[in-house]
Amino acid sequence: MVSAQQFGEAAAGRSDDDAVLRSQHVAGVEVPQQLVAPVVKRELNSFLAFVKRRDAGLETDEDTDQEPVKTTV
Rank of each mutant, 00 (worst) to 15 (best):
R54I: 04
Q34K: 01
H25M: 11
G8R: 14
V36W: 07
Q33C: 06
Q66W: 09
S23H: 08
L44I: 00
V29H: 15
A19P: 04
D61S: 10
R22L: 04
P32N: 04
Q6E: 14
R14K: 12
A11C: 07
Q5L: 05
Q33S: 09
K41R: 11
R42F: 07
V51C: 10
L58W: 02
Q33D: 06
Q34E: 13
F7D: 09
T72A: 10
T64Y: 08
E59T: 03
L35W: 04
V39Y: 05
T72C: 03
A10T: 02
V2W: 10
S15M: 02
R22C: 03
A27P: 01
Q33F: 09
S15C: 12
A10M: 13
G57T: 06
D55C: 08
G8H: 09
A56F: 03
N45L: 15
G8Y: 03
V36T: 05
P68R: 07
R53L: 15
D18L: 13
G13K: 08
L58K: 14
K41W: 01
E30I: 09
Q24M: 14
A56H: 07
V36D: 02
L48W: 04
R53A: 14
E59W: 10
V36Q: 12
R22Y: 12
A49F: 03
E30G: 05
G13P: 11
A19L: 15
A19F: 13
T71R: 13
E43M: 15
V29E: 15
L35Q: 15
V26S: 01
A12W: 03
T60K: 00
A19C: 04
G57M: 06
D65K: 15
V2Y: 07
D61W: 07
P68E: 13
D18E: 10
E67Y: 03
L48Y: 00
E9R: 12
R53Q: 15
A27E: 14
Q33G: 06
E59D: 15
D63G: 04
A10P: 01
T71E: 07
G57F: 02
V20N: 07
Q66H: 14
N45I: 02
A12P: 02
V26G: 01
D18T: 13
P38W: 00
A56T: 06
D18K: 12
S23A: 12
K70H: 11
F47G: 01
S3R: 04
V73H: 04
V31S: 00
P68G: 05
Q6R: 14
L35D: 10
V69Y: 13
Q24C: 10
A11V: 09
F50H: 00
T64D: 09
R54W: 12
V39C: 01
Q5N: 09
